[in-house]
């Protein structure tokens, strides 16, 4: 599957800032798209696209904080680096309370911004890898039969085969067979691994 490279989405109402950031980011080989308003970004937003958002906190119309809120509402995972000015502490605090990854205060050094962007991109990669892993585990769980699912639930609660056999009213040997099938279908190397996968899958639900 071909994926678009991670893109830096810059949202700032100031033409000069957009232009200079576009030039700066291109000069270091980072793909960049710029938007003059939060609404324009939201209209073009595609949750599938990897990258990060560089967002001016103070804008006419929809502010950076409001855009963050909208993105949270649709459970978007794109990391946000806010651009702030003097006097923006209360807004920065609010943005932190709502999960912003980082801030850069104007005027900033180019390298500072690039460092923060790289950190945000790394976070986005981690988030997406985590989601992919979760999807894969859920796929595997869907391939279990209802009985295997039951055994999985009991096993991950730490119950011994003998106890599960009693609970499900089947022989211990049957439980062992189901259990082996569950481990195989889930691709689990150990009970601990299986438990980790189930926790991971449930975190998404």
């Amino acid at each position: 599957m071909k994926e678009k490279p991670a893109t830096i989405f810059v949202v700032d109402d100031d033409d000069a800032v957009r232009t200079s950031l576009r030039l700066l980011l291109r000069s270091v080989g980072l793909p960049v798209e710029t938007f003059g308003s939060a609404q324009a970004f939201l209209d073009a937003f595609d949750a599938e696209r990897a990258g990060c958002l560089v967002l001016d906190i103070r804008m006419p119309g929809m502010s950076g904080l409001e855009l963050q809120q909208r993105l949270n509402e649709i459970h978007a995972i794109i990391p946000i680096v806010f651009i702030t000015g003097h006097g923006d502490v209360p807004m920065a605090v609010e943005a932190m309370q709502h999960g912003a990854v980082d801030f850069i205060q104007k005027p900033f050094r180019d390298q500072d911004l690039i460092d923060r962007i790289n950190q945000a991109l790394e976070k986005d990669r981690d988030n997406r890898a985590g989601l992919k892993e979760r999807d894969a585990i859920q796929d595997r769980m869907r391939q279990l039969t209802p009985r295997e699912r039951e055994v999985l639930e009991h096993v991950t609660r730490g119950k011994a085969n003998k106890v599960i056999a009693g609970d499900l009213n089947v022989s211990q040997r049957t439980v062992e067979i189901h259990r082996a099938r569950v481990m195989e279908k889930m691709g689990a190397s150990s009970l601990a691994h299986l438990v980790r996968m189930v926790i991971e899958a449930e975190r998404a639900a």
Partner: peptide
């Protein structure tokens, strides 16, 4: 609490676990 208007301090404080940063 802080008397300095510094976004960096605010961000560090929140990262260090503060529930709020009041100027």
């Amino acid at each position: 609490l802080s008397g300095d208007d510094d976004v960096r301090d605010a961000v560090s404080a929140m990262r260090a676990g503060a529930i709020d940063f009041i100027e």
